[in-house]
Simulated scan of single mutants.
Amino acid sequence: MKPFAKKLGAGLTANVVLLGIVSFFTDMSSEIIFPLLPFFLVFNLGASFFIIGIMEGVAEAVASVLKVFSGYWSDRAGKRKPFISSGYGQSAFTKLFFGLATIWQHVFVLRIVERVGKGLRQPPRDALIAESSPPERKGKAFGFQKAMDTGGAILGPLLAIILVSVFASAYQPIFLIAIIPAFVGFIITLFLKEKKKKKVLKAPLKVGLKQLPIRMRVFVAIATIFALGNFSVFFVMLRTVDLGQTVTMALVFYLIMNITYAFSAIPAGSLSDRIGRVPTIVTGYLLFAVVCFIFAFQTGPILIGIAFLVLGLSNGFAIAVQRAYVCDLAPEEIRATALGTYHMSIGFAKLFSGIMVGFLWTFVGVQFAFIYGVILSVMAATMLYGLPRK
């Protein structure tokens, strides 16, 4: 049996497992760097919350534009692997320079450039996961990928906690150490296998929703509304310290979130295979509303810990399952393009979200920033729940 078709575990193929391992090492690297990045920016380099919001919003928007083009190029070429490998490689090389940054403008640019790699790799990677999985196991495959991704995110903050105890607030040496697993993940992508496509996309690129099925257009619109309120975890980390917790304690809470995410992603994906994507995603949206409510009005460490736990559940129920649902709704020959369009819509929403939350926090009040998240999450959940099933 060819490696591509060989099933590993309960319906997981070789490509799905390899991509899971790649995600594990890549996210280990990212999650050493990125939980510390907001503190490095604010405490070491003097960036404001508004600057952080702009940075995160622009970074996600740039990545999203590339997701559309990489998805289209992948569909036209009938290949996934070259885009996946080059995207992971580009991110690995960029991470090297975080350890050399001396002003917040350096980090601003590097954060955007690092997201270029994600934009290049993600739609082809998601398409390869879908194409490597039987229809009844797609939800579980995406859940496995996100669980491995978050498994690396468990080890990453653990290493960050240890490294912070060694280097204190000298974050640059920690960032340099973090590039090692990033390069391991890149090397593993070279072992992916894919079938030659019998049918490839020949139509010109059409950025937008018109080429997509109507049901997918409606879902993308609803998911975009949720993304408008689903702001960067940077703000959650900064809010934790703002409420009187230490950076180390914030990392511990962040670790709780990632552990919860890792253990909920596969069950949530499998649940969506059984009861449907929509009820599972709606649950994730409402859980995020609970998180925002807690951070808006509560201050105690126990409730903060609960909020991070619920945030992990929200990610497990919403993020991976949303991508599986897009793959369900998109025809195979434009699947990567559809995923790219979906990611573009989400990314531009996050551009507005980052700027809006940074503005509200800086100029209006931190509670208003989190209330904004509650309103948008509940709105999206209500609209999606009311969507006809067929």
Rank of each mutant, 00 (worst) to 15 (best):
W73G: 03
P331Q: 03
V62S: 08
K202S: 12
V291Q: 01
Q105K: 07
L360A: 05
V374I: 11
V326G: 02
S91Y: 15
T283Q: 00
A153L: 13
F175A: 07
F348S: 05
S91H: 13
F25C: 07
I161C: 08
P3T: 06
Q172L: 09
P331I: 05
L192G: 07
K390A: 11
K67Y: 14
A221E: 02
R80L: 11
K390W: 08
E114D: 15
V116A: 06
F235S: 04
L387W: 08
S345F: 14
F39N: 04
S132E: 14
V107F: 09
G276Q: 04
F39M: 03
A14E: 11
A223P: 00
P213W: 07
L339N: 12
V62R: 03
G156L: 12
S74E: 12
G89D: 12
A250Q: 05
M257R: 04
L128Y: 15
S345M: 11
Y261D: 04
R121H: 08
I32Y: 14
A336I: 13
Q322M: 02
Y285T: 00
I112E: 08
G89I: 04
V366H: 13
K2D: 15
T248C: 01
F25Q: 12
L120Y: 14
P331N: 08
F97W: 10
A182N: 06
Q105Y: 13
L238W: 07
Q298H: 09
R217M: 03
L387N: 02
Q172R: 15
I371T: 03
S86D: 04
G340L: 08
Q122V: 13
Y261R: 00
